[in-house]
């Protein structure tokens, strides 16, 4: 598996898992675009009286024929079957790697038992911006079945896009902290 496929996996996850690989994504977009255009042109010809002469009509037909006819394929849902998943947090950041501690979600471990050095180059640009001590990510290894039916082994590191602390939340915690402090003083 190359870092390219890993980056692709990251990017796909970043887009919300809409598509599968770059190839599938471009293929699907092209097919959708051509089909819509073609349908629109055909609708114009069939349902609306054309304001111009026959020559123009023939020209329109010629234009339509310039679009390649793409056979519609049955939609195969892209799937990802994880073999192993971890949750991790960043401990140290070096020049080329970052150290992270990992909790094995697959074996339902209760605490971090493992640690690894991850190449920063494996991260997507978005994730690089999220890289900081304490940042939380998911690391999954598994098989991805593409829409075209092919199967590939992937490693996917995705930094979690956690919500931000809000003013309201922090103020509420300060209020609760006062109560807790009082309780701990036996009040």
């Amino acid at each position: 598996m190359t870092s390219e496929t890993s980056l692709a996996a990251n990017m796909i996850q970043d887009t919300g898992g809409i598509s599968d690989t770059y190839g599938d994504f471009i293929y699907d977009t092209a097919q959708r675009y051509l089909s819509a255009k073609r349908r629109h042109q055909i609708d114009l010809l069939r349902n609306q009286p054309h304001p111009f002469n026959d020559t123009v009509k023939r020209q329109d037909i010629d234009i339509i024929s310039m679009f390649p006819s793409v056979p519609r394929i049955e939609s195969i849902k892209a799937t990802f079957a994880p073999l192993q998943e971890w949750e991790g947090y960043v401990v140290e950041i070096g020049d080329e790697t970052f150290v992270a501690r990992l909790i094995d979600l697959t074996s339902e471990a209760k605490q971090e038992e493992e640690e690894a050095d991850f190449p920063i180059s494996e991260l997507s640009e978005t994730d690089k911006q999220r890289l900081r001590p304490g940042a939380i990510f998911r690391w999954a290894i598994g098989y991805r079945k593409t829409r075209s039916g092919s199967k590939e082994r992937v490693s996917s590191i995705v930094f979690r896009r956690l919500p931000a602390w809000t003013d309201r939340e922090l103020k509420e915690n300060r209020r609760k902290a006062k109560l807790l402090a009082a309780a701990l003083q036996g009040e």
Partner: peptide, 10 residues
């Protein structure tokens, strides 16, 4: 934490 800062592990 500060307001608008992304949540993380301490």
């Amino acid at each position: 934490p500060r307001v608008k800062e992304t949540k993380k592990r301490a």
